[in-house]
Simulated scan of single mutants.
Amino acid sequence: MRLLHTSDWHIGRTFHGHSTLDALRGVLLELAEAVRRERVDAVLVAGDVFDSATPAAAAFELFEEAVLAIRAAGAAVVMTSGNHDSAARLGHQAPFAAAGGVHVRTRADRLDVPVELTDEHGAVDVFGLPYLEPLLVGGRTHEEALAGAMDRVRAAVARRGNRAVVLAHCFASAGVVPRAAGGERDITAGGLDVVPVSVFAGTEEAPVAYVALGHLHSRMQLAPQVRYAGAPLHYSFGETSPLRGAWLVDLDATGLHDVRWLDLAVPRRLSEITGPLEALLADPALADREDDWIQAVLTDPVRQQDAMARLRQRFPFVARLEHRPEGAPSADARSYGARTAGLPDAALIAGFLEHVRAGAGPSDAESALVADVLSAVRAAERAA
């Protein structure tokens, strides 16, 4: 059986104020052509299908177009909800979708009920773990929530005796926290919540052939059978990997046989250019970056008038501009909003407490209280 592992479509997300719908449409339709060309049996989408719990109509239209194209190419679809999705909305009418070969897994109470696929060797059970809010599943951390979920999955694998594949949406690590791997916002309300890769390990009685992870936006291999596919587009300048694509996963009669990377086209590259404004406007070596998304760092001693407008005359897709004078002190001169953009809520609260307390941050008890309150708020938002 051949599976294609993708994740983090984030349909409806913008890139520094620019719509990504057209670019994403092209990539997802290319992915559907790859399904046909590579004879893929099932496409796995490991969470964050949408970027918002309340997607706009145009986002739903692209979702339908992409899924229908994948089905027309001959593959079943198995997808789970991520921390950006509304589980209730994504899972609406899931039984009807399953009748058409699109299997949507959003219910924590049914995460040990697999989607059963078949090939010439028999059955393959695909267990789709939706994003698990710890407060709602009886855990204080995401590690505890996923450990409990995997206990249920392993029990089902042992009972059923089929080859098993797992989808999960989390911040997993094989020992080193992969900070530069994706540029995604923190997955928990209470702060960084890393899940050790050992949580997904199979046993002799309940082997797990492959674990398809979502949440980080760049591809990563945590173990031969545990991988991130990353997002199909670049969604921030923090996503340092230039590659976009998906993993092709081949199973044989006993389990995992082979995994190889499938490149997808990058509609527009990310580039950073640094130097004085006049030099950037005149440098012939930058000719091949004129159609890239540009993050420009100006090193002029003083701020240049109309710098963004002038840069866009040569680089029409300048998305971000920073003034960093050459030889200036290394102190962060950005505004408070710029320095805190993208930080998780818990980090914002901790920073505020440090500021008003002259450097004394929250105590352990206060941090735990903040985590519980924010987790409750997130749970209420997702249940809405």
Score class of each variant (00 low, 15 high):
12 G>R: 03
14 T>C: 11
18 H>D: 14
21 L>E: 08
21 L>S: 08
22 D>I: 05
27 V>P: 02
27 V>N: 05
29 L>E: 12
30 E>W: 02
30 E>C: 06
30 E>M: 02
34 A>V: 10
41 D>E: 15
50 F>K: 07
54 T>V: 15
59 A>M: 07
61 E>H: 11
61 E>G: 04
64 E>T: 13
66 A>T: 12
67 V>S: 06
71 R>S: 11
76 A>Q: 14
79 M>S: 06
79 M>T: 04
82 G>D: 08
88 A>V: 13
88 A>H: 11
95 P>G: 03
96 F>W: 14
98 A>G: 12
106 T>D: 07
107 R>Y: 03
110 R>V: 02
111 L>T: 03
116 E>T: 15
116 E>W: 05
129 L>F: 00
132 L>W: 06
134 P>T: 01
140 R>S: 14
140 R>N: 10
143 E>P: 11
145 A>L: 00
149 A>S: 13
150 M>N: 01
153 V>R: 09
169 H>S: 04
170 C>A: 15
171 F>H: 12
179 R>C: 02
179 R>E: 12
180 A>Q: 09
182 G>Y: 09
186 D>F: 05
194 V>I: 15
200 F>Y: 14
203 T>C: 04
205 E>Q: 11
209 A>S: 15
215 H>L: 09
221 Q>M: 12
225 Q>R: 12
227 R>C: 05
229 A>L: 11
236 S>E: 00
243 L>Q: 15
245 G>M: 06
248 L>E: 12
250 D>H: 09
253 A>Y: 03
253 A>I: 06
255 G>M: 11
255 G>D: 08
260 R>K: 07
263 D>G: 03
267 P>Q: 02
270 L>G: 00
285 A>H: 07
294 I>C: 00
297 V>G: 08
297 V>S: 09
300 D>V: 01
302 V>T: 13
307 A>H: 04
310 R>E: 04
315 F>C: 09
316 P>D: 00
319 A>V: 08
329 P>L: 01
329 P>N: 01
329 P>T: 05
332 D>E: 13
333 A>K: 06
339 R>G: 00
340 T>I: 12
340 T>P: 10
340 T>L: 14
344 P>C: 01
348 L>K: 01
348 L>D: 01
354 E>F: 02
356 V>A: 07
360 A>F: 03
364 D>M: 03
367 S>D: 13
375 S>C: 13
376 A>G: 12
376 A>F: 04
376 A>T: 08
379 A>E: 12
382 R>Y: 11
383 A>L: 15
383 A>I: 04
